[in-house]
Design a binder for these strands. Sequence first.
DNA 1: TAAGATAGTGAACAATAGGCGAACAATTAT
DNA 2: ATAATTGTTCGCCTATTGTTCACTATCTTA
Lengths: 228, 228
Amino acid sequence: MLTRKQHELLRFIQVRLEDTGISPSFEEMKEALDLKSKSGVHRLISALEERGFIRRLPNRARALEVLKQPENITTKPAVRKAPANSNDAPRPRTPLTAPANDVIEIPLHGRIAAGVPIEALEGQSTLPVPAALLGTGEHYALEVSGDSMIEAGILDGDFALVKKTNTARDGEIVVALVRGEEATLKYLRRENGMVRLDPANAAYEPQIYGSAEVEVQGKLAGLLRRYN
Amino acid sequence: MLTRKQHELLRFIQVRLEDTGISPSFEEMKEALDLKSKSGVHRLISALEERGFIRRLPNRARALEVLKQPENITTKPAVRKAPANSNDAPRPRTPLTAPANDVIEIPLHGRIAAGVPIEALEGQSTLPVPAALLGTGEHYALEVSGDSMIEAGILDGDFALVKKTNTARDGEIVVALVRGEEATLKYLRRENGMVRLDPANAAYEPQIYGSAEVEVQGKLAGLLRRYN
DNA sequence: TAAGATAGTGAACAATAGGCGAACAATTAT
DNA sequence: ATAATTGTTCGCCTATTGTTCACTATCTTA
């Protein structure tokens, strides 16, 4: 579906987004792809958009969103083969460390939506999780309590795998600590300086706070559920 | 459905895509199939597209996407198990004490609800899963396709972890093979000699079959989802 | 609010890579 | 036998990429 350059750029955007939560600028992408002009980036971006891999707001800075992944970043070992071209000496760009096919133990911090800052109940137990499920960064797990996110397919008792970050984009599901007191799992939306936390359950109301009142503690990266 | 060459090319494309995420060019496919000209590739591609195995953006470079897998990759038809008689002895309940806090690799059998017997697309890839999520017994994974179970919190793209069994109780979510043809994930219910498969989506209708038409291939044991 | 800085658009040109398709022969399946 | 599939040649057209340059849009800040 993608050409080499398109793929390279998509990966870069994706990693950058996961890492920092902020879209790279054209300038940065230009550097990353080792181009001399932003025009090339522009065209690649257009191609990616045409192919449905990213979405963007035209004329807006750093407003990229990755919609699809290229096929190869899923379930597989992902051994990065280095083509080792004879003619190009420096190739330090694209660190893009592919997550290994390992398993990592992530701390289980207790239940969320319990009206307690999750930091407080720093747990002792851990949950083994296939690394392939998670991206880069540090993660932790929370047991979901309540039904406020059922319409997003997140049920009571599920384990939410959360990536630690304090930035997130609109529409992402985040662990938000409100006024230092209450941690909840909600959709994050920003509206003219305010932060809105949307539940995924028609029975609950969206909550709006000043941006100083809400601290993003992580974004939802995965989900585990057990049936009996 | 596919000729030898078409099959060969499809496999190549698929592997390449999984491997690198970048579509092969005609030139590369030509090499892979050991042809002397791209024209042959062009015809094969057209044939594959016509048959619905791949999708492409015409007049775009390296814009291929695999939609279906060839079915006969393992030549292994569904294992016809002797139907459980009324007086059947207790199943050899594999005690198989799962390593408590470990991880096991379970085979990923492809997508379900694709109108193809899952047994047929014995995959190659596996999915690492924390053993704690699963109980005893043999398991496999399926990627969920479609939205027929959304009200049960099972979304398109989720991985269903399925325990192999041919018995299930009413109300359990099972992988059911209907008339040896179509495998679906549904709630199982029995009513006066018939078997009802209930979706968890008001937009779909329950389906009722004679008990001979439905073979339970497993029950849902866990669920795994990744967010991006 | 005007000046600058930063960011994104897009035309134009050139070079290369990639895709399209007719024509004809050889081979295989039904 | 008859149709479908395959291998090949050759030429043409289009897409992608790298680059330059000029322009527009947004944001910051004095």
